[in-house]
Design a protein around this nucleic acid. Structure first.
Lengths: 313, 313
DNA sequence: ATTTTTGCATCACAAAATACTATCAAAATG
DNA sequence: CATTTTGATAGTATTTTGTGATGCAAAAAT
């Protein structure tokens, strides 16, 4: 039994297809077929049920795949340990970022980071929280930036900053006169929300559920970008909530429509998250310190109340 | 990097000698030398400092060895998973037992066990607790039977039974008249103890320290067997304490000198212990159930007070 | 101080394992 | 029914792993 064989098993288990798995492993399909047969023979069991289409894991195969993941992860960490010892910070690093953080945070730290760690090849992907969790677990991402806490056993979190929610109230709205607003001023049914799947949407639903129930009446528009929501609000279609960093690059005329919450301000917790396997910890730590550096200047710590980003059932 | 290479690294790390390590791996020394060189080259580091005699691990080498242990352990478990699935209970199994449990417990369950699981080749070794802990951690033992709790992070314990201490009081002793005795009746300085290194000795010291301090006066004889202690006690040299199972095969004349403690009786906790890696769990569980079966008849559960087997500093 | 022993490295070569190309057979697709 | 997809197999090339013989330096023994 070799580590290579286990990697082949994992590839087939993931793609449910020998040919595709072989490609991903950069070998030909017969090579992979034979190695899979060899390990099955050595263990004297069948890992895959080839009679089903697409290919299925047998019961014992599932157990072996789980264990193989452990082994391959632990083996990968050896190279990690060596690099860490050498103080080498480089190589490919796959980072996921949720859409509501991406446009504001990424420009703030990306330049700093690539200058400081030129040997790291950052591969950044915009994904929503659910997709991120899956990809962290199956190893397609090394780390991600998302709203937390996620309460996921297999994922670790390092809090980067707390980002208050800011209300955007169009001029004609009744709350426009107030200097600061409270959660109770908000009517969930007139808040313009992002599409389903954005955790920022879920966070706001959690925030507002506290007082009133959601009435499924009237209209509800959901958009994928805050810019749309702002324009809709300006058209008199309701109010909206923005994460603090988003408010910084509004036009001055729009900034006048922003209203802070009274303390403790509702806020989201933004964290760097990564799988428990803790691969590439040097780079994760490099990211953390770079982001901490740039965010410290932008976000003044205030008395905040953290809103869960999770969808409550 | 292959699992085989990691095993070679572990063998050299353990024996600090290429030639010996090669033997243990059942390959020639050049094979092992070359594979070690290959993995060092692949990682581009030195794992061993060959200039020192005996060979030393480099700093990074130590870290790699730690990780290699993980990997090899996890890899071993794959075969374990397969056997478990197949319901196969067999193969070599190395069991350590402490000297004060060996002569009484082993005859009680060994016959049952080998009849029930004829494919298991039990390799039993008499070792004291310290030796057992080392050998469990480095993989030279699969499990052991010892007094617990050990409070060791890396070792798991399954309690088998509680074995009360019984006092052996010679006829002319002042406590001989009492039907039941108490801890306060014991004078640590007149109790005959086993040699240093036996945890039964440490347990008794813990028991008696509660009341009085140990005076380092007079005489203290330490023996390696209870039989010696009994004879010395008969000669009027003091009293001694025996574990309950040991009292069962005394001569009737000697049994008259036994005195039980008042409840809660001081007792030792005897457990099946094994490393966290949890290899060969099927056999460990087979042992547990076999021993539980035979002990249930012999030891009536009573109100006991567990004495720690650990040497307090 | 010389010899012997110990212990790892190196060389040349054998055996085994791994991978590739080409091809086949079965199942799924149209 | 022809076509495509997908995994297995055969034969061969390449790479890896292993062996025995030997070298060489340092430590141990005489």
């Amino acid at each position: 039994m070799t580590i290579t064989q286990l990697q082949y098993v994992l590839a087939v288990a993931e793609h449910k297809n020998f040919t595709l798995a072989a490609e991903k492993c950069f070998v030909t399909q017969p090579t992979l077929s034979m190695q899979i047969q060899k390990i099955e023979e050595e263990l004297n069991i069948l890992i895959f049920d080839r009679s089903k289409k697409p290919i299925q894991l047998t019961d014992i195969g599932q157990k072996i795949v789980n264990q193989a993941k452990n082994i391959v992860n632990e083996a990968d960490r050896i190279k990690d340990i060596v690099e860490q010892q050498k103080g080498f910070i480089g190589g490919e690093f796959r980072l996921g970022i949720i859409p509501t953080i991406m446009p504001t945070l990424l420009p703030m730290f990306l330049n700093n980071f690539i200058k400081k760690y030129p040997k790291v090849k950052l591969l950044i992907e915009e994904l929503n929280t659910d997709e991120i969790i899956v990809k962290l677990k199956n190893g397609h991402l090394n780390a991600a930036i998302a709203a937390t806490p996620l309460e996921d056993e297999k994922i670790k979190e390092i809090v980067l900053y707390f980002e208050p929610f800011v209300a955007y109230i169009p001029e004609h709205h009744s709350s426009f006169q107030k200097e600061e607003i409270e959660v109770s001023d908000l009517n969930i049914n007139e808040i313009l929300l992002l599409q389903d799947g954005h955790c920022f949407r879920d966070g706001i639903l959690n925030l507002c559920k506290n007082g009133t129930d959601i009435e499924q009446n009237n209209f509800q528009i959901q958009s994928g970008s805050f810019e749309t929501l702002i324009k809709l609000a300006d058209e008199g279609l309701g109010t909206t909530l923005l994460p603090y960093l988003h408010t910084m690059d509004l036009k001055d005329s729009d900034k006048l429509k922003l209203r802070n919450f009274k303390e403790p301000k509702p806020a989201r917790e933004v964290s760097l998250i990564y799988p428990k396997s803790e691969l590439k910890m040097q780079i994760i730590d490099a990211l953390r310190s770079t982001i901490a550096g740039v965010v410290k200047g932008a976000i003044v710590f205030q008395n905040v109340q953290i809103i869960s980003p999770l969808q409550k059932k």
